[in-house]
Design a protein around this nucleic acid. Sequence first.
DNA 1: TTGTATGCGTTATCAT
DNA 2: ATGATAACGCATACAA
Lengths: 332, 332
Amino acid sequence: MNKVNSTPTMKDVAAEAGVALGTVSKVVNGLPVGDTYKTRVEEAIKKLNYQVNSYAQGLKLQKTRTVAFLIPNTKEPFYGALAYYINIALLKRKYRMLLCSTDSDMGQEQEYIKMAQNNKVDGIIGLTYNPDLVIEEGTPFVAIDRSMGSKIPCVASDNFAGGQLAAEKLADLGCRKVAFLRTGASLNNEPNKRRSGFENGCLSRNLPYEMKILNDGDPYQEFDDFLISHMKDGKLEFDGLFCVTDGIAYYIMKVLRRMKLRVPEDVQVIGFDGVKNVGGDYICSTIVQPVPEIAEMCVELLLQENMPVKPPLVCLPVTYACGGTTLEHMKE
Amino acid sequence: MNKVNSTPTMKDVAAEAGVALGTVSKVVNGLPVGDTYKTRVEEAIKKLNYQVNSYAQGLKLQKTRTVAFLIPNTKEPFYGALAYYINIALLKRKYRMLLCSTDSDMGQEQEYIKMAQNNKVDGIIGLTYNPDLVIEEGTPFVAIDRSMGSKIPCVASDNFAGGQLAAEKLADLGCRKVAFLRTGASLNNEPNKRRSGFENGCLSRNLPYEMKILNDGDPYQEFDDFLISHMKDGKLEFDGLFCVTDGIAYYIMKVLRRMKLRVPEDVQVIGFDGVKNVGGDYICSTIVQPVPEIAEMCVELLLQENMPVKPPLVCLPVTYACGGTTLEHMKE
DNA sequence: TTGTATGCGTTATCAT
DNA sequence: ATGATAACGCATACAA
């Protein structure tokens, strides 16, 4: 009796082709098999529309060709883009991707990691801002944008270079005094590198600068106060602002508008991320993170088997893009 | 000899607790077990940090607690939001989600569907604009925004009501003559409902209207020509525009700006989708699709086992949101 | 109530 | 080169 209405198994294929089970397995996996047998098996496969059951295969091989991707969400465009490019990079290597939206909730994150721990997935790529996650050795893990201990490779944009680039651009564009605006003082160290790079750039160009760094939980409104306190005779002391993210830049631009200051005529603004609005325009002039390259690098690092020692930190080059909040036409 | 450096199995737990394999299984699955045995097993589980192997379980049960989500990408905010909310809805039910970015490529889409066909996932939720996909009966499938035959439930926004709402809003806001702008005449039938609803609303309010419907592949620029041809004495004939998506609305607003027409003073614009920009603002006044509700409904429909007959089409209510491209302050 | 044994669909190790 | 068979980790029908 044929099992009716069920997906065919190797056994069915073997019966159909009149060969042994093992032979079918060999054909499927490309192992040497006699030509006549091979074609017979292939025909049976086509006829029954057979496809390997990846769960049985995973059980046997202790390999699932699946990786989990931990991300706070996919609503924000930077995260969404990352998810997309990692998905594509995995697909290219015939790996599936389990999407794990964590809402940055540590419980969720730890849960997902536990899942992977027990050979349910072959590895994890994670963007998490939680410093206390426990990742047992033996679980392939690649972190994005945040170092998670020396055992775990981290791939990130070259934040330092990005900060420096922002400073140099502002200098090139004629700024005389600038400021750096950022939130989340304690959140993680990558924005710190943006700051360091920015300072470095300002110093090398003799560009005077100030900083306003908000602590976690501080309301954005403190930026307003900061800017207002730097008004002199109806003019802002700064003619250039570097914001640690495009999101902050967007907020700042709203504040500036309320203050009747024009962007970029009165004050030029550069953000960070390279996020695009609907319509494909940049929100602001910005340091663009190389999202596709980050994705590709993560996957490569995770799946590369015979890499004796994995690099602890990989920094990928950023680029500058004009988004209409800087005065490109004046110079260069 | 204990297997070293390997994840513990039920057998290990049974040995540790000094009970039989089956007993462990029962404890894990909440079946009745003697109290002393139960605690002993639970302790062993904790001690060994045991967790069931979902691949073995899936093989045994022919259930993987995994669903595949087909979506063109997660870069566009509407898609990204959908992916996020579906992920959350599945998580709530202890289901995992396989993200399948298809780039709207039919080959990819069909590949993913084939994967599901062979009991590798328990079901599929798909947003695809491809009319020719073959989905064998027996594969639980829920479509988003596009009807795929009577056997497959489709959940969508109430596009007709949305179109009608847009017309009524424009009428309420004082418009005297309006136009409907849309692309992709042949793409699928949902935008058609937006049109029908819009017409219906205009007629019921005695609001004169015109349409400009682009064929697939036509450049957006035809919209420019359409608008320009409706200029009279430096004024646009229309004082209200309904665009089939927020993306189109965004494009149109750029065109209007070039034509020296002010939004919303000279012409009011309403889009469709409810997409938000970075910063959380709407791009334009818009008909908002209920993304979280769509996600929840898809999951519910897909996983509901004992539903005798699944509804072929579920329309979820849309809402209107002001996004600064309409003159709300004038009326109401 | 608890233990035993079988099979889910594969792969891999053997004989043949 | 090909075929039989054990094992992967689990759930369950059945025996104790």
